[in-house]
Design a protein around this nucleic acid. Structure first.
Lengths: 232, 232
DNA sequence: GCAGATTATGTCAGTCGCTGACATTCGGCA
DNA sequence: TGCCGAATGTCAGCGACTGACATAATCTGC
Protein backbone atom coordinates (compact mmCIF):
# COMPACT_ATOMS: atom_id res chain seq x y z
CA UNK A 1 0.00 0.00 0.00
CA UNK A 2 2.50 2.59 1.10
CA UNK A 3 5.07 0.68 -0.92
CA UNK A 4 7.00 3.40 -2.68
CA UNK A 5 5.40 6.66 -1.76
CA UNK A 6 7.62 9.23 -3.47
CA UNK A 7 8.99 11.03 -0.48
CA UNK A 8 12.05 13.28 -0.46
CA UNK A 9 14.01 10.94 1.77
CA UNK A 10 15.17 11.95 5.19
CA UNK A 11 11.72 11.07 6.37
CA UNK A 12 11.01 7.84 8.25
CA UNK A 13 9.71 4.80 6.40
CA UNK A 14 12.15 2.50 4.62
CA UNK A 15 14.28 2.22 7.74
CA UNK A 16 12.99 -0.98 9.33
CA UNK A 17 11.92 -3.42 6.64
CA UNK A 18 8.20 -4.15 6.77
CA UNK A 19 7.31 -1.96 9.72
CA UNK A 20 4.54 -4.33 10.77
CA UNK A 21 0.84 -3.69 10.94
CA UNK A 22 0.98 -1.93 14.27
CA UNK A 23 3.56 0.58 13.12
CA UNK A 24 1.74 1.14 9.84
CA UNK A 25 -1.48 1.91 11.63
CA UNK A 26 0.29 4.38 13.84
CA UNK A 27 1.79 6.25 10.92
CA UNK A 28 -1.62 6.20 9.37
CA UNK A 29 -3.48 7.81 12.22
CA UNK A 30 -0.69 10.27 12.74
CA UNK A 31 -0.93 11.28 9.13
CA UNK A 32 -4.69 11.46 9.32
CA UNK A 33 -4.49 13.70 12.35
CA UNK A 34 -2.13 16.09 10.62
CA UNK A 35 -4.37 16.21 7.58
CA UNK A 36 -7.55 16.77 9.52
CA UNK A 37 -5.95 19.41 11.69
CA UNK A 38 -4.61 21.17 8.66
CA UNK A 39 -7.95 21.25 6.97
CA UNK A 40 -9.75 22.51 10.04
CA UNK A 41 -7.12 25.11 10.82
CA UNK A 42 -7.18 26.54 7.34
CA UNK A 43 -10.95 26.62 7.13
CA UNK A 44 -11.86 27.99 10.54
CA UNK A 45 -8.60 29.24 12.00
CA UNK A 46 -6.20 27.82 14.52
CA UNK A 47 -7.67 29.27 17.69
CA UNK A 48 -11.23 28.41 16.77
CA UNK A 49 -10.42 24.77 16.20
CA UNK A 50 -10.50 22.55 19.26
CA UNK A 51 -8.46 19.43 19.77
CA UNK A 52 -11.71 17.55 20.24
CA UNK A 53 -12.75 18.48 16.74
CA UNK A 54 -9.51 17.24 15.25
CA UNK A 55 -9.64 14.02 17.21
CA UNK A 56 -13.22 13.19 16.39
CA UNK A 57 -12.64 14.04 12.72
CA UNK A 58 -10.20 11.10 12.69
CA UNK A 59 -12.39 9.16 15.08
CA UNK A 60 -9.97 8.83 17.93
CA UNK A 61 -10.23 10.07 21.47
CA UNK A 62 -8.78 13.38 22.56
CA UNK A 63 -6.40 11.45 24.78
CA UNK A 64 -5.01 9.62 21.81
CA UNK A 65 -4.37 12.88 20.02
CA UNK A 66 -2.15 13.96 22.89
CA UNK A 67 -0.25 10.72 22.68
CA UNK A 68 0.78 11.63 19.15
CA UNK A 69 1.38 15.33 19.68
CA UNK A 70 2.50 17.03 22.84
CA UNK A 71 0.20 19.95 22.16
CA UNK A 72 -2.00 21.63 19.60
CA UNK A 73 0.89 23.63 18.20
CA UNK A 74 2.86 20.53 17.35
CA UNK A 75 0.34 19.14 14.94
CA UNK A 76 0.24 22.44 13.10
CA UNK A 77 4.01 22.58 12.78
CA UNK A 78 4.45 18.92 11.86
CA UNK A 79 4.82 19.59 8.16
CA UNK A 80 7.36 22.34 8.62
CA UNK A 81 9.26 20.11 11.01
CA UNK A 82 9.70 17.50 8.30
CA UNK A 83 11.00 20.10 5.90
CA UNK A 84 13.50 21.32 8.45
CA UNK A 85 14.75 17.80 9.07
CA UNK A 86 15.26 17.38 5.37
CA UNK A 87 17.26 20.59 5.25
CA UNK A 88 19.60 19.27 7.93
CA UNK A 89 19.99 16.11 5.91
CA UNK A 90 21.00 18.17 2.89
CA UNK A 91 23.49 20.13 4.93
CA UNK A 92 25.15 16.96 6.14
CA UNK A 93 25.85 15.94 2.56
CA UNK A 94 27.38 19.12 1.21
CA UNK A 95 30.89 18.78 -0.20
CA UNK A 96 33.69 19.86 2.10
CA UNK A 97 35.10 22.32 -0.41
CA UNK A 98 32.17 24.64 0.10
CA UNK A 99 32.43 27.52 2.50
CA UNK A 100 30.14 27.12 5.52
CA UNK A 101 27.96 29.94 4.31
CA UNK A 102 27.87 28.48 0.81
CA UNK A 103 26.91 25.08 2.19
CA UNK A 104 24.02 26.60 4.14
CA UNK A 105 22.73 28.52 1.15
CA UNK A 106 22.99 25.56 -1.14
CA UNK A 107 21.22 23.28 1.33
CA UNK A 108 18.29 25.58 1.84
CA UNK A 109 17.82 26.03 -1.87
CA UNK A 110 18.05 22.32 -2.52
CA UNK A 111 15.60 21.57 0.26
CA UNK A 112 12.97 23.93 -1.11
CA UNK A 113 13.47 22.72 -4.64
CA UNK A 114 13.25 19.03 -3.77
CA UNK A 115 10.24 19.45 -1.54
CA UNK A 116 8.61 21.57 -4.19
CA UNK A 117 9.04 18.83 -6.77
CA UNK A 118 8.27 15.89 -4.52
CA UNK A 119 4.85 16.92 -3.45
CA UNK A 120 3.82 19.41 -6.07
CA UNK A 121 0.27 18.57 -5.13
CA UNK A 122 -1.37 16.70 -2.31
CA UNK A 123 -0.54 16.52 1.35
CA UNK A 124 1.78 19.30 2.34
CA UNK A 125 1.95 20.93 -1.05
CA UNK A 126 4.02 24.06 -1.41
CA UNK A 127 0.96 26.16 -2.13
CA UNK A 128 -0.61 25.18 1.15
CA UNK A 129 2.74 25.89 2.79
CA UNK A 130 2.12 29.55 2.15
CA UNK A 131 -1.25 29.48 3.84
CA UNK A 132 0.31 27.53 6.67
CA UNK A 133 3.01 30.12 7.20
CA UNK A 134 0.50 32.91 7.13
CA UNK A 135 -1.51 31.07 9.73
CA UNK A 136 1.56 30.67 11.92
CA UNK A 137 2.37 34.31 11.55
CA UNK A 138 -0.86 35.53 13.05
CA UNK A 139 -1.55 32.98 15.71
CA UNK A 140 0.61 34.28 18.56
CA UNK A 141 1.12 31.04 20.41
CA UNK A 142 1.79 29.22 17.16
CA UNK A 143 4.37 31.74 16.09
CA UNK A 144 6.01 31.42 19.46
CA UNK A 145 6.17 27.65 19.21
CA UNK A 146 7.52 27.87 15.70
CA UNK A 147 10.30 30.22 16.72
CA UNK A 148 11.26 27.88 19.47
CA UNK A 149 11.52 25.03 17.01
CA UNK A 150 13.66 27.15 14.73
CA UNK A 151 16.17 27.92 17.45
CA UNK A 152 16.41 24.27 18.34
CA UNK A 153 17.15 23.56 14.72
CA UNK A 154 19.84 26.22 14.92
CA UNK A 155 21.54 24.28 17.66
CA UNK A 156 21.75 21.29 15.37
CA UNK A 157 23.16 23.44 12.61
CA UNK A 158 25.87 24.61 14.99
CA UNK A 159 26.79 21.02 15.72
CA UNK A 160 26.86 20.01 12.09
CA UNK A 161 28.93 23.01 11.06
CA UNK A 162 31.41 22.57 13.86
CA UNK A 163 31.79 18.90 13.06
CA UNK A 164 32.19 19.60 9.39
CA UNK A 165 34.93 22.15 9.97
CA UNK A 166 36.46 20.19 12.79
CA UNK A 167 36.30 22.68 15.62
CA UNK A 168 34.79 23.02 19.05
CA UNK A 169 31.76 25.35 19.17
CA UNK A 170 32.55 26.22 22.77
CA UNK A 171 35.94 27.54 21.81
CA UNK A 172 35.13 29.07 18.48
CA UNK A 173 32.05 31.28 18.21
CA UNK A 174 31.88 31.23 14.45
CA UNK A 175 29.51 28.26 14.07
CA UNK A 176 27.12 29.75 16.59
CA UNK A 177 27.20 33.17 15.03
CA UNK A 178 26.82 31.90 11.51
CA UNK A 179 23.94 29.61 12.42
CA UNK A 180 22.19 32.48 14.13
CA UNK A 181 22.70 34.79 11.20
CA UNK A 182 21.56 32.16 8.77
CA UNK A 183 18.41 31.44 10.72
CA UNK A 184 17.47 35.05 11.02
CA UNK A 185 18.01 35.83 7.37
CA UNK A 186 15.87 32.86 6.48
CA UNK A 187 13.14 34.04 8.75
CA UNK A 188 13.27 37.47 7.21
CA UNK A 189 12.79 35.88 3.81
CA UNK A 190 9.86 33.85 5.10
CA UNK A 191 8.26 37.00 6.41
CA UNK A 192 8.66 38.70 3.07
CA UNK A 193 7.02 35.76 1.42
CA UNK A 194 3.95 35.83 3.59
CA UNK A 195 3.76 39.59 3.64
CA UNK A 196 2.05 40.67 0.45
CA UNK A 197 2.80 38.15 -2.18
CA UNK A 198 1.00 35.90 -4.54
CA UNK A 199 1.70 32.21 -4.04
CA UNK A 200 4.39 31.93 -6.70
CA UNK A 201 5.66 28.41 -6.19
CA UNK A 202 8.91 27.31 -4.58
CA UNK A 203 11.05 29.12 -7.15
CA UNK A 204 9.64 32.42 -5.97
CA UNK A 205 10.60 31.54 -2.45
CA UNK A 206 14.08 30.51 -3.49
CA UNK A 207 14.58 33.78 -5.30
CA UNK A 208 13.51 35.64 -2.20
CA UNK A 209 15.93 33.73 -0.04
CA UNK A 210 18.76 34.42 -2.45
CA UNK A 211 18.06 38.12 -2.55
CA UNK A 212 18.05 38.33 1.21
CA UNK A 213 21.36 36.59 1.43
CA UNK A 214 22.79 38.91 -1.18
CA UNK A 215 22.03 41.79 1.13
CA UNK A 216 24.04 40.32 3.97
CA UNK A 217 27.27 41.97 2.91
CA UNK A 218 25.77 45.37 2.12
CA UNK A 219 23.78 45.41 5.35
CA UNK A 220 26.86 44.91 7.45
CA UNK A 221 28.95 47.32 5.41
CA UNK A 222 29.46 50.93 6.42
CA UNK A 223 26.87 53.55 5.76
CA UNK A 224 23.80 52.96 3.66
CA UNK A 225 23.65 56.34 1.99
CA UNK A 226 26.17 55.02 -0.50
CA UNK A 227 24.85 53.86 -3.91
CA UNK A 228 22.52 51.23 -2.37
CA UNK A 229 21.89 47.88 -4.08
CA UNK A 230 25.00 46.02 -5.03
CA UNK A 231 23.98 42.42 -5.68
CA UNK A 232 26.90 40.11 -4.93
CA UNK B 1 5.72 59.96 47.17
CA UNK B 2 6.81 58.71 43.77
CA UNK B 3 8.20 62.16 43.12
CA UNK B 4 11.55 61.46 41.53
CA UNK B 5 12.06 57.73 41.46
CA UNK B 6 15.43 57.27 39.75
CA UNK B 7 14.46 55.33 36.69
CA UNK B 8 16.48 54.90 33.50
CA UNK B 9 14.02 56.96 31.49
CA UNK B 10 12.11 55.54 28.58
CA UNK B 11 9.73 54.07 31.06
CA UNK B 12 6.27 55.55 31.65
CA UNK B 13 5.70 57.97 34.53
CA UNK B 14 6.56 61.62 34.08
CA UNK B 15 4.42 61.83 30.96
CA UNK B 16 1.14 63.12 32.34
CA UNK B 17 1.82 65.37 35.31
CA UNK B 18 0.34 64.00 38.51
CA UNK B 19 -1.07 60.77 37.11
CA UNK B 20 -3.93 60.82 39.60
CA UNK B 21 -4.68 58.41 42.38
CA UNK B 22 -6.31 55.87 40.14
CA UNK B 23 -3.35 55.62 37.83
CA UNK B 24 -0.89 55.47 40.69
CA UNK B 25 -2.74 52.61 42.29
CA UNK B 26 -2.74 50.74 39.03
CA UNK B 27 1.02 51.08 38.59
CA UNK B 28 1.34 49.97 42.13
CA UNK B 29 -0.58 46.73 41.83
CA UNK B 30 1.04 46.03 38.50
CA UNK B 31 4.43 46.39 40.07
CA UNK B 32 3.40 44.27 43.03
CA UNK B 33 2.21 41.54 40.70
CA UNK B 34 5.49 41.49 38.82
CA UNK B 35 7.44 41.33 42.05
CA UNK B 36 5.34 38.58 43.55
CA UNK B 37 5.41 36.57 40.37
CA UNK B 38 9.15 36.94 40.13
CA UNK B 39 9.70 35.76 43.63
CA UNK B 40 7.42 32.78 43.24
CA UNK B 41 8.86 31.80 39.88
CA UNK B 42 12.42 31.88 41.13
CA UNK B 43 11.66 29.98 44.29
CA UNK B 44 9.41 27.22 42.98
CA UNK B 45 9.71 27.37 39.22
CA UNK B 46 7.54 28.85 36.51
CA UNK B 47 5.37 25.85 35.75
CA UNK B 48 4.73 24.99 39.37
CA UNK B 49 3.47 28.48 40.14
CA UNK B 50 -0.20 29.09 39.48
CA UNK B 51 -1.76 32.39 38.58
CA UNK B 52 -3.98 32.04 41.62
CA UNK B 53 -0.94 32.00 43.84
CA UNK B 54 0.44 35.17 42.30
CA UNK B 55 -2.87 36.93 42.51
CA UNK B 56 -3.58 36.04 46.10
CA UNK B 57 -0.03 36.98 47.08
CA UNK B 58 -0.94 40.51 46.05
CA UNK B 59 -4.45 40.07 47.35
CA UNK B 60 -6.32 40.56 44.12
CA UNK B 61 -8.58 38.19 42.24
CA UNK B 62 -7.31 35.97 39.46
CA UNK B 63 -9.50 37.89 37.07
CA UNK B 64 -7.72 41.10 37.94
CA UNK B 65 -4.38 39.50 37.21
CA UNK B 66 -5.54 38.78 33.69
CA UNK B 67 -6.60 42.36 33.25
CA UNK B 68 -3.01 43.42 33.83
CA UNK B 69 -1.31 40.65 31.90
CA UNK B 70 -2.65 38.78 28.92
CA UNK B 71 -1.14 35.55 30.19
CA UNK B 72 1.24 34.05 32.68
CA UNK B 73 4.17 34.47 30.31
CA UNK B 74 3.73 38.18 30.10
CA UNK B 75 4.29 38.84 33.77
CA UNK B 76 7.49 36.83 33.65
CA UNK B 77 8.81 38.79 30.69
CA UNK B 78 7.73 42.20 31.95
CA UNK B 79 11.17 43.14 33.22
CA UNK B 80 12.93 42.16 30.02
CA UNK B 81 10.33 44.06 28.07
CA UNK B 82 11.26 47.26 29.86
CA UNK B 83 14.92 46.71 29.10
CA UNK B 84 14.14 46.20 25.45
CA UNK B 85 12.14 49.38 25.31
CA UNK B 86 15.06 51.23 26.80
CA UNK B 87 17.37 49.79 24.16
CA UNK B 88 15.11 51.16 21.43
CA UNK B 89 15.21 54.51 23.11
CA UNK B 90 19.00 54.44 23.05
CA UNK B 91 19.04 53.51 19.41
CA UNK B 92 16.82 56.45 18.56
CA UNK B 93 19.39 58.84 20.02
CA UNK B 94 22.54 57.57 18.37
CA UNK B 95 24.44 60.14 16.31
CA UNK B 96 23.87 59.98 12.58
CA UNK B 97 27.56 59.62 11.79
CA UNK B 98 27.59 56.11 13.15
CA UNK B 99 27.20 53.18 10.84
CA UNK B 100 23.94 51.28 11.39
CA UNK B 101 25.82 48.33 12.79
CA UNK B 102 27.88 50.61 15.02
CA UNK B 103 24.74 52.31 16.28
CA UNK B 104 23.19 48.98 17.20
CA UNK B 105 26.29 47.81 19.02
CA UNK B 106 26.67 51.05 20.90
CA UNK B 107 23.00 51.07 21.91
CA UNK B 108 23.00 47.58 23.30
CA UNK B 109 26.15 48.23 25.29
CA UNK B 110 24.79 51.48 26.65
CA UNK B 111 21.50 49.86 27.56
CA UNK B 112 23.17 47.11 29.56
CA UNK B 113 25.52 49.52 31.26
CA UNK B 114 22.82 52.00 32.24
CA UNK B 115 20.44 49.37 33.49
CA UNK B 116 23.27 47.76 35.37
CA UNK B 117 24.01 51.01 37.14
CA UNK B 118 20.45 52.18 37.64
CA UNK B 119 19.23 49.24 39.60
CA UNK B 120 22.39 47.66 40.89
CA UNK B 121 20.27 46.18 43.61
CA UNK B 122 16.57 45.85 44.21
CA UNK B 123 13.70 45.15 41.88
CA UNK B 124 14.96 43.80 38.59
CA UNK B 125 18.61 43.75 39.50
CA UNK B 126 21.08 42.51 36.97
CA UNK B 127 21.97 39.52 39.07
CA UNK B 128 18.39 38.36 39.12
CA UNK B 129 18.33 38.97 35.37
CA UNK B 130 20.59 36.00 34.98
CA UNK B 131 18.31 33.73 36.94
CA UNK B 132 15.42 35.10 34.96
CA UNK B 133 17.05 34.28 31.67
CA UNK B 134 17.91 30.81 32.82
CA UNK B 135 14.31 30.34 33.82
CA UNK B 136 13.14 31.49 30.42
CA UNK B 137 15.54 29.16 28.73
CA UNK B 138 14.14 26.01 30.26
CA UNK B 139 10.45 26.78 30.38
CA UNK B 140 9.39 25.90 26.83
CA UNK B 141 6.33 28.12 26.59
CA UNK B 142 8.20 30.97 28.21
CA UNK B 143 11.05 30.69 25.79
CA UNK B 144 8.58 30.65 22.95
CA UNK B 145 6.86 33.78 24.19
CA UNK B 146 10.17 35.49 24.69
CA UNK B 147 11.30 34.76 21.16
CA UNK B 148 8.09 36.17 19.86
CA UNK B 149 8.68 39.37 21.77
CA UNK B 150 12.18 39.58 20.40
CA UNK B 151 11.03 39.36 16.81
CA UNK B 152 8.46 42.05 17.41
CA UNK B 153 11.22 44.21 18.76
CA UNK B 154 13.15 43.48 15.59
CA UNK B 155 10.34 44.95 13.55
CA UNK B 156 10.70 48.17 15.46
CA UNK B 157 14.44 48.14 14.92
CA UNK B 158 13.82 47.83 11.19
CA UNK B 159 11.59 50.89 11.28
CA UNK B 160 14.04 52.96 13.30
CA UNK B 161 16.99 52.02 11.11
CA UNK B 162 15.12 52.71 7.90
CA UNK B 163 13.95 56.05 9.20
CA UNK B 164 17.41 56.95 10.40
CA UNK B 165 18.98 56.19 7.04
CA UNK B 166 16.06 57.56 5.12
CA UNK B 167 15.03 54.57 3.05
CA UNK B 168 12.00 52.37 2.53
CA UNK B 169 12.34 48.94 4.15
CA UNK B 170 10.08 47.44 1.53
CA UNK B 171 12.44 48.48 -1.23
CA UNK B 172 15.73 47.99 0.50
CA UNK B 173 16.30 44.76 2.40
CA UNK B 174 19.28 45.98 4.36
CA UNK B 175 17.43 47.19 7.45
CA UNK B 176 15.53 43.94 7.70
CA UNK B 177 18.59 41.81 7.22
CA UNK B 178 20.70 43.80 9.64
CA UNK B 179 18.01 43.79 12.31
CA UNK B 180 17.66 40.05 11.95
CA UNK B 181 21.38 39.48 12.17
CA UNK B 182 21.70 41.77 15.13
CA UNK B 183 18.91 40.05 16.99
CA UNK B 184 20.31 36.62 16.42
CA UNK B 185 23.83 37.53 17.45
CA UNK B 186 22.45 39.04 20.61
CA UNK B 187 20.51 35.93 21.36
CA UNK B 188 23.58 33.82 20.83
CA UNK B 189 25.40 35.97 23.38
CA UNK B 190 22.52 35.60 25.81
CA UNK B 191 22.67 31.86 25.44
CA UNK B 192 26.37 31.86 26.14
CA UNK B 193 25.75 33.86 29.25
CA UNK B 194 23.21 31.48 30.67
CA UNK B 195 25.13 28.44 29.56
CA UNK B 196 27.81 27.78 32.12
CA UNK B 197 28.82 31.04 33.61
CA UNK B 198 29.06 32.66 36.97
CA UNK B 199 26.92 35.76 37.38
CA UNK B 200 29.63 38.26 36.58
CA UNK B 201 27.72 41.53 36.43
CA UNK B 202 26.69 43.52 33.40
CA UNK B 203 30.27 44.09 32.26
CA UNK B 204 30.68 40.38 31.76
CA UNK B 205 27.61 40.36 29.58
CA UNK B 206 28.84 43.32 27.60
CA UNK B 207 32.14 41.63 26.98
CA UNK B 208 30.33 38.55 25.76
CA UNK B 209 28.21 40.58 23.38
CA UNK B 210 31.26 42.33 21.99
CA UNK B 211 33.09 39.09 21.38
CA UNK B 212 30.13 37.64 19.54
CA UNK B 213 29.92 40.67 17.30
CA UNK B 214 33.61 40.44 16.62
CA UNK B 215 33.02 37.02 15.16
CA UNK B 216 30.49 38.26 12.66
CA UNK B 217 33.05 39.00 9.99
CA UNK B 218 35.06 35.83 10.45
CA UNK B 219 31.94 33.68 10.51
CA UNK B 220 30.78 34.98 7.18
CA UNK B 221 34.23 34.86 5.64
CA UNK B 222 35.42 31.95 3.52
CA UNK B 223 36.65 28.75 5.06
CA UNK B 224 37.25 28.33 8.72
CA UNK B 225 40.34 26.16 8.53
CA UNK B 226 42.36 29.35 8.17
CA UNK B 227 44.16 30.72 11.27
CA UNK B 228 40.91 31.10 13.26
CA UNK B 229 40.31 33.97 15.69
CA UNK B 230 40.95 37.39 14.31
CA UNK B 231 39.37 39.90 16.68
CA UNK B 232 38.43 43.04 14.78
C1' DG C 1 -19.30 68.51 49.04
C1' DC C 2 -22.52 65.90 45.92
C1' DA C 3 -24.84 63.41 41.99
C1' DG C 4 -23.56 60.84 38.00
C1' DA C 5 -20.51 59.14 34.56
C1' DT C 6 -16.14 56.15 34.38
C1' DT C 7 -13.36 52.65 35.55
C1' DA C 8 -11.21 49.11 38.33
C1' DT C 9 -12.32 45.04 40.77
C1' DG C 10 -14.71 40.80 42.41
C1' DT C 11 -17.63 36.83 41.56
C1' DC C 12 -19.24 33.18 38.92
C1' DA C 13 -19.75 30.03 35.45
C1' DG C 14 -17.88 27.97 31.68
C1' DT C 15 -14.54 26.46 27.80
C1' DC C 16 -10.44 24.44 26.46
C1' DG C 17 -5.72 22.55 26.70
C1' DC C 18 -3.52 19.00 28.90
C1' DT C 19 -2.40 14.97 32.29
C1' DG C 20 -2.53 10.78 35.38
C1' DA C 21 -4.71 6.45 36.37
C1' DC C 22 -6.94 2.54 35.15
C1' DA C 23 -9.50 -0.58 32.21
C1' DT C 24 -9.84 -2.59 27.56
C1' DT C 25 -8.60 -3.98 23.18
C1' DC C 26 -5.54 -5.25 19.59
C1' DG C 27 -1.27 -6.63 17.17
C1' DG C 28 3.13 -9.52 17.73
C1' DC C 29 4.83 -13.86 18.68
C1' DA C 30 5.86 -18.46 20.60
C1' DT D 1 -4.11 -20.80 20.84
C1' DG D 2 -2.76 -18.05 24.39
C1' DC D 3 0.20 -14.85 26.49
C1' DC D 4 2.66 -10.21 26.58
C1' DG D 5 3.10 -5.64 25.62
C1' DA D 6 1.61 -1.62 23.17
C1' DA D 7 -2.19 1.43 21.62
C1' DT D 8 -6.51 3.18 22.80
C1' DG D 9 -10.60 4.69 25.41
C1' DT D 10 -12.75 6.52 29.57
C1' DC D 11 -12.88 9.33 33.40
C1' DA D 12 -11.73 12.65 36.64
C1' DG D 13 -9.31 16.65 37.48
C1' DC D 14 -6.12 20.83 37.28
C1' DG D 15 -4.97 25.18 35.58
C1' DA D 16 -5.04 28.89 32.07
C1' DC D 17 -8.10 32.00 30.28
C1' DT D 18 -12.75 34.57 29.07
C1' DG D 19 -17.43 36.71 29.02
C1' DA D 20 -21.12 38.61 31.76
C1' DC D 21 -22.75 40.96 35.38
C1' DA D 22 -22.66 43.17 39.90
C1' DT D 23 -20.12 46.16 43.12
C1' DA D 24 -17.10 49.53 44.70
C1' DA D 25 -13.87 52.87 43.98
C1' DT D 26 -12.16 57.23 41.45
C1' DC D 27 -13.06 61.18 38.70
C1' DT D 28 -15.96 65.05 36.80
C1' DG D 29 -18.69 69.13 36.67
C1' DC D 30 -21.52 71.55 39.64
Amino acid sequence: MAAHTPRPAGIPEDLGRTPGLRERKKQQTRYALVQAAHMLFLSQGFARTTVDEIASAVDVSQRTFFRYFANKDEVALAVMAEAEDYFIECLRHRPAEETPLQALRASIVKAWRDLGNAKASGAGSITSALELMRMIEDAPTLLAAHLRRVTEQERIVVRVLAEREGLDPREDLRPTVLAAVFGSVLRAAHLSWTADREPDGPEGMIALIESHFDQLGPALAGHWRTPAQRPE
